[in-house]
């Protein structure tokens, strides 16, 4: 009896003191599947027009193009729905229609060999639909260098190994220019005790994203002039605009806090 009472007492004490030391910030979110990491659902007008909303698979597009091509040259805003794309825009050859034109990629409306009109709506308007996609994520991932989080693909290594070749030009939209002066990588002091400092690959970010994707909308400040916290990043500000949504997630600490400590 006494033993049982002691166990109960210890349990009660454990439960009462559990929040102490377990203090953390943010809300634990369910992680998406590897194949769905980076997917963006777009529903500007689809539901209103009795169409399934669009799922944009970032993984496939980023395996072929730099972020810059779409988010600068083609005019896609960084926030889902902010661009206000309409089907008329796409049919006029803009936005998705810059590539989905029947030449570079499938067009939403095409013709079969007999000249009949064929609509290809499902690969894009795929929310709630069983679609057999032409490009299989699992097969693609197996050929790529692995990573723990995100899509489960180390995209930087994939590019370095030549397994993905990212185009930075779309005919009719991009402008050929001399190679840009690439910025130097930065060392940023971490604020968390016992966390290594950050090595920010400014060069890689500039090549993939272009300068204007981040400055001034995401980073309107001179390096180090405004301290920002991990809480803000987890809440989707600063680095969190891309990291956790499309780029590797913020729980992969050592990807950024990477300065050797000895």
């Amino acid at each position: 009896m006494r033993a049982a009472l002691s166990v109960l007492l210890v349990l009660a004490l454990l439960l009462a003191t559990a929040p102490v030391g377990a203090e953390t910030f943010g809300v634990k979110k369910k992680r998406p599947r590897l194949s769905e990491f980076g997917n963006v659902t777009l529903d500007n007008q689809s539901t209103a027009n009795n169409q399934a909303p669009v799922v944009f698979p970032h993984w496939f597009h980023r395996s072929r193009y730099t972020c810059r091509v779409c988010h600068v040259d083609l005019g896609f805003a960084m926030r889902a729905g902010a661009t206000g794309i309409t089907e008329a825009d796409i049919r006029a050859g803009f936005y998705c229609g810059a590539c989905h034109n029947g030449r570079t990629a499938f067009a939403p409306v095409g013709t079969d060999p007999d000249g009949n009109e064929v609509k290809t709506c499902d690969p894009c308007h795929s929310v709630g639909r069983q679609v057999n996609f032409k490009h299989d994520f699992r097969a693609f991932r197996r050929s790529m260098p692995p990573e723990r989080f995100g899509n489960g693909i180390d995209w930087i290594e994939a590019e370095e190994e030549g397994k993905v070749k990212l185009a930075d030009y779309v005919e009719g939209f991009s402008v050929r220019h001399a190679e840009l002066k690439t910025p130097k990588d930065l060392e940023l002091a971490g604020k968390e005790a016992k966390m290594p400092d950050i090595i920010f690959s400014h060069r890689k970010h500039a090549i993939w994203n272009g300068c204007e994707s981040c400055h001034p909308d995401i980073f309107p400040v001179r390096t180090g002039s405004v301290p920002y916290s991990m809480q803000e990043i987890f809440d989707g500000r600063w680095c969190g605009v891309c990291h956790d949504k499309v780029a590797f997630p913020n729980i992969d600490c050592q990807r950024c806090h990477s300065k050797p400590v000895y």
Partner: peptide, 15 residues
């Protein structure tokens, strides 16, 4: 759409 795109790009560049 053309004007919408060019406006976006010019605003981004101006920023």
């Amino acid at each position: 759409p053309a004007a919408k795109l060019w406006r976006f790009r010019l605003n981004q560049c101006r920023g």
